[in-house]
Design a protein around this nucleic acid. Structure first.
Length: 305
DNA sequence: CGGTTACCCTGGATGC
DNA sequence: TGCATCCAGGGTAACC
């Protein structure tokens, strides 16, 4: 079935885990911008100059961002950060000498003595990805915080409940709002709400505390299961850094399964369009995710239907 | 300000 | 077979 697969939190985490053993501790010896269109806050020359000779101390995931935390060998210079946002169709490839299709950035890393750097390619079919450079941790942090809330795997129940109480949007677009919590996109939002037994169109601010707790648990359960499976590959657009497919497709209950039988009950998976999602599809199970009226919660009166 | 929508981009699928 | 249109959706900007 030919839809797209998108790097959400589990896919980005898989990328980061794949990059770490190949890149951490090595020196940036080569940096070639193959498509300047993706550069966010620097020119190709600036990026090259700033990055060259830096040591990649660690690779981190922040929401759906891939962050190369760099240092200089002398440690005189402050830390610096190369940030890559895969967005829709971005991904990394290791161990290839020739540029893969849609290669947008080439990162060559090596030990100080090695003459042939190891090549890391960033590919991005649709060119919606972004590449940025920040000269300090504060600068990088500020850029992230401007558009992101707590990480989806770190947010506490109290934080989540607080955020949901103050919006009148449906729960699904709220879970996808990176300012509310970072890392969830269209596919995992559906899986999480299915796992929690909550209809995606329920308004965030009418959910009961027990329902928010179910969602909070489902977030970790679904995302961690997807990470363990190395993400989802619905088609060729997402691969691990070694070009392998993620295995979560086998555990997917909803995406692209419109008209098929639910894995957990007798009902049929349905597809709908929800306001605030610009026509993006939402999948849900009528049996597992009951459609309750969006009545406002009263003080003592609970809204059982 | 909160909520909603247009747009960015490419390529595969679909329609006539 | 060819050409137009639709669709996918993360994120930002502009809108009401």
């Amino acid at each position: 079935m030919g839809s797209t697969a998108v790097p959400e939190l589990p896919e980005v985490e898989t990328m980061v885990r794949g990059l770490r053993p190949a890149v951490e501790g090595l020196v940036l010896q080569r940096l070639e911008v193959l498509d300047p269109f993706l550069l966010e806050n620097s020119t190709a020359d600036q990026l090259k100059t700033r990055a060259h000779g830096r040591v990649v101390r660690s690779i981190q995931r922040r929401g759906k961002w891939v962050v190369f935390a760099c240092d200089s060998i002398s440690s005189q210079d402050p830390h610096a950060f190369l940030v890559i946002q895969p967005r829709m169709t971005g991904g990394f490839r290791l161990g290839e000498q020739d540029p893969p299709r849609h290669a947008r950035l080439l990162i060559g890393v090596g030990s100080p003595r090695s003459r042939e750097p190891r090549l890391v390619w960033f590919t991005d079919t649709r060119r919606l990805g972004r590449i940025a450079w920040y000269d300090s941790a504060q600068e990088a942090e500020r850029a992230f915080a401007r558009s992101h809330g707590p990480d989806a795997l770190r947010i506490t129940l109290v934080e989540l409940e607080h955020a949901l109480r103050r919006t009148s949007r449906a729960i699904k677009p709220t879970l996808m709002d990176q300012k509310v919590l970072a890392g969830i996109g269209n596919i995992y939002a559906d899986e999480i709400l299915f796992d929690a037994g909550i209809h995606p169109g329920r308004l965030a601010n009418v959910l009961r505390t027990s329902e928010i707790a179910s969602i909070h648990e489902a977030i970790s359960r679904v995302l961690n299961a997807a990470i363990a499976a190395e993400g989802s590959s619905f088609d060729a657009s997402y691969r691990t850094v070694l070009g392998l497919e993620g295995g979560f497709l086998n555990e997917n209950h909803l995406y692209g399964r419109e008209g098929s039988r639910c894995h957990r009950c007798e009902a049929t998976i349905e597809k709908l369009k929800l306001p605030g999602l610009l026509g993006r599809p939402t999948y849900w199970c009528r049996g597992c995710q009951p459609l309750k009226p969006n009545r406002r919660l009263k003080k003592k009166h609970t809204n059982h239907d």
